[in-house]
Design a protein around this nucleic acid. Sequence first.
DNA 1: TTAGGGTTAG
Length: 621
Amino acid sequence: MTPITSSPTKQLSLELNVTQPLSVLERCSKMEELKQIHAHMFKTGLVADTILVSKVLTFCASPKYGNLEHAQKVFDRVNTPNTFMYNTMIKGYSENKSEKALHLYQQMLYLSVPHNSYTFPFLLKACSSLSVMEETKQIHAHVIKFGFGSEVYAVNSLLHVYASSGSIEAARLLFDQVAERDIVSWNSMVDGYAKCGKMEAAYEFFKNTPTKNVISWTTMISGYVGAGMYKEALDLFQEMQLEGVEPDKVALASTLSACSYLGALDQGRWIHAYIDKTGIVIDPILGCALIDMFAKCGDMEEALRVFKKVKKREVSLWTSLIYGFAIHGRGGEALDWFENMQKAGIKPNHVTFTAILTACSYSGLVDEGKSLFESIERVHKLRPRIEHYGCMVDLLGRAGFLEEAKGLIEQMPVKPKAVVWGALLNACRIHKNVELGIKIGKLLVEEDPDHGGRYVHLASIHAAAGEWERAVETRRQMKERGVSKLPGCSAISLDGVIHEFLAGTKSHPQAKQIYRAWDSIAERLEKEGYKPALQNLLLDLDDEAKEMAITQHSEKLAIAFGLLRTKPGTTIRIVKNLRICEDCHTVTKLISKIYDREIVMRDRTRFHHFKDGKCTCGDKW
DNA sequence: TTAGGGTTAG
């Protein structure tokens, strides 16, 4: 036995010697301490005590303090481990996504160790994290064979595995068969349907759930978020409160992520205030969601305040802050915080590198980006992933080093995905390299024939080269193949109400005034020498939809509405679902100067802060 | 012992 050196442990072992080994074990909080106690148990013969050994096992196998290797050693030294010990080990391995959980179960069967009602939930958790359908079916048979077919825990665990691994039909069959269902069964079904995108079915189950709890609501809310139905998610959050269900931190984190996507700052602020008021502790995940929300809703200063308030600063918290600075084009600050993070002893992970490389890219920090990319493997001993290559292609391409970017794609160790080529195509657009752009555009359409955006890209590159017929032909091809493009939509939030505009839409109650306002804006723009970008207009020749009509773009309608409804001098904030159009970008710069307004526009990937005729993106987005 | 959460290149 290792000699006992520190005094607290000495006291512990003395106590152990005397009478209360169990309570000493229960107070133990360090692996080292436990090893000493265990050694002591050997010495004193207490190691034969089933309950004590079980306690030791539970400690070692728990994800908090534990050490599964050590747990296995303890387990191996027990002559005939009982059901509890097997269960504990299976639980430990299931939390570690290890196949050993299944091996242990086999051993259990082989040695005829009986099951109890805890065995299957643990085992099925392992099946769920390992996504092993064959084994799940076999275990399902065992559940029935060993008489657990009507135990709600075992059944719910089965439901969860089926539902969460895409076998929703199997889950449904089982759900319909069983005699006893509880709230967990219903929630698992809602989750399962939502995860496979069947939102109507998910809602049907949600609606029919007899007594909903906060998890039912959260499952449905995050289901909506996962399906991109952010408005529905916010509506449901509101409904939940009207029903008198108190949101907990999980419900709030899910709803915050809907706010982030929508740019719904008012709702996001409300949640932040609610957290403060109710004293909910901001754990790393909730903190991450809050920082991300403030960043994506345009309020970096508040994001920073939240960051400073959170006590437990995990790597994800730093990462969301760095990513926030990245999308605002505040690359210098992103780099500062990246450095602060390392000074605080936090190691960057692959997501952090995605964030910091994005920051370099959006701020044109080419040398810094290159050196960081190089450091991923050399300094941080991580393998660069495809997304890091993507960032680098974007960074080099945006800065005008198109050949270097292309070279990087060609020497990537993994096959580049469409997004990587997409980054280069975007660079071709920015730097007007039509030849390369058309090559890549064609390649992307072939690779992704159902992706509307690819056709639009190719068409606009053709148009930029003056090849109008080819541009029109590309749009026609898209139409013939029945591919649709997500319509551009810009939203502006006033007094907590979100006003959405689609291109050419006249559905807004104030549509007439908005169009009139735009006409007068257009007049002033013309006086400043602005001419609409004709290349885009030409694409509309065969298009009956008003969508492409450049003067009716959603961004322009939202700005007109903003100027109409907000006080002079105030900032206009707009969120667009797609990337901002080039003509709209030019126009917005001009408007910021003519009307002396700051306009903050978030597009699909980043923020544009327009002021005095300039934009923070430096026209390279 | 079973169910719900965050950050990630265009």
